[in-house]
Design a binder for these strands. Structure first.
Lengths: 242, 242
DNA sequence: TCATTTTTTGACAATGTGTCATTTTTGAAA
DNA sequence: TTTCAAAAATGACACATTGTCAAAAAATGA
């Protein structure tokens, strides 16, 4: 349909700007408060033009979500490259995911929104698939490391737990915890340092499975500190002391 | 404002019917597909009457959510009464929550929806507080049992994990896992028996913390089976074999 | 320069929420 | 049984927002 040398670039730039504005407005006013008219106004384009890029408001949000997951996938992929024993690589993933949630809290809130029904359905097919594929690859990275651990002889799973089920467990802990954190209602509950709590709970889970080296045999906090500095220095700055 | 002997009963009955219809429509068509007009039509009342009970669509959903949490609190409170060692009582909570999610999957999806932004804000103040209070009491039940475990000498938490943080961990695992299950996209990921997986992961977590009796010292699956039959026979029927 | 194609625009139809003046029902006193 | 004021129910309406599309404007290139 479309062909153009530099037109293509301009088109992409504009799409990026739409998403930028949309993300800001979404964070400011929430799902119900995001208005297509307002996006158009802030962009100094008309609504019709926005609809040239996206088929609906939900479609915009879906694309924001896709960006989210891609960002996380990127960080996780980076972390999984860490040279070390499998359990240390899991710790590296922990660093990645924590940094992701802290540094891109807005991204995460978008993920929350699209999980609530209906929104997914109204988005373009293509975007949905992109998103599902990304999620799958994220899971794949984790369960790959679990299998590496088994192969290395560091981990023997009980017969009632498959690698996918363990992955699901860590995923649930991380996702559920982050959801609760981001949604707010945590302050009143007296949970200190919730991010650290997620990581510590995962450590205890892995200890329970006797995944070597155990948490008291290795200084994982130090390892994670090092990983953060070595692999994610670009994202670090103030995220450590909020 | 209102006073009436049997009027009051009729009012409550109608409110219950509104919620019943709303819940069904919400489950059928999702958040965006829930129309106040349609609720009115199915009720054979006019829209204005619905608005006498609820200030907005979001307010209706919020009340559905409050029912959700109340239901869960009820089941959890029942489970916590189990006469046994603290870790067994945690297992009882596991039974309760699993039954809750399976038996009241629709309730849970509502909880999902209200976590996505904005909806909360548009609901009546009173309903919001009711909901937060319920959540707090749910957490309280769990951390109470954790403290009982410590007091009984069955559990010694490492200095880096408070009872609230452990509670937060189990909560995240359970909530996150249930969210992922209910939202669907699980089939493609190759996770078998996800409910059992949640429970097993929690068991491994508690083993990692050395909470006695450890999972291989006691037949927890059998214990849970028994608890289900003794304490929750009214909810059991087909929930065991889906 | 001007004809043709592409892009942008914003008025508009469609849909839905929440309100409120008007109508209907209720129930107690006459 | 009739009467009438208070309470409850109604649905037309005002308003907001989405998504569309014919018309206007801009870009292209001969």
């Amino acid at each position: 349909m479309n062909r153009s040398p530099r037109k293509e670039r301009e088109w992409k730039e504009r799409e990026a700007r739409i998403l930028e504005v949309a993300r800001r407005l979404l964070m400011e006013h929430g799902y119900l408060g995001l208005k297509m008219d307002q996006i158009a106004a802030e962009m100094e384009y008309s609504k019709g033009t926005i609809y040239q890029h996206f088929s609906s408001k939900e479609d915009v949000i879906m694309e924001l979500a896709a960006q989210t997951i891609e960002k996380r996938l990127e960080l996780m992929a980076r972390a999984s490259e860490y040279k070390g024993r499998p359990r240390e690589r899991i710790a590296a993933l922990g660093v990645a995911v924590e940094l992701f949630v802290r540094r891109f809290a807005d991204y995460f809130r978008v993920e929350q929104i699209i999980r609530a029904d209906s929104i997914r359905e109204k988005a373009a097919q293509e975007r949905q698939e992109k998103l599902t594929a990304c999620e799958l690859r994220c899971m794949g990275i984790v369960s790959g490391i679990v299998r590496d651990g088994i192969a290395a002889g560091d981990l023997t799973l009980p017969e009632f737990l498959t690698p996918e089920q363990l992955t699901f467990g860590m995923w649930s802990l991380s996702f559920g915890g982050s959801s609760i954190i981001v949604t707010g209602q945590l302050g009143e509950l007296g949970v200190e340092e919730p991010f650290q709590a997620i990581i510590n709970n995962i450590q205890m889970l892995l200890d329970g499975l006797n995944w070597k080296p155990l948490s008291y045999e290795t200084d994982y906090p130090q390892t994670m500190e090092r990983i953060a500095e070595e692999m994610f220095s670009d994202l670090l700055d103030d995220a450590r002391t909020p």
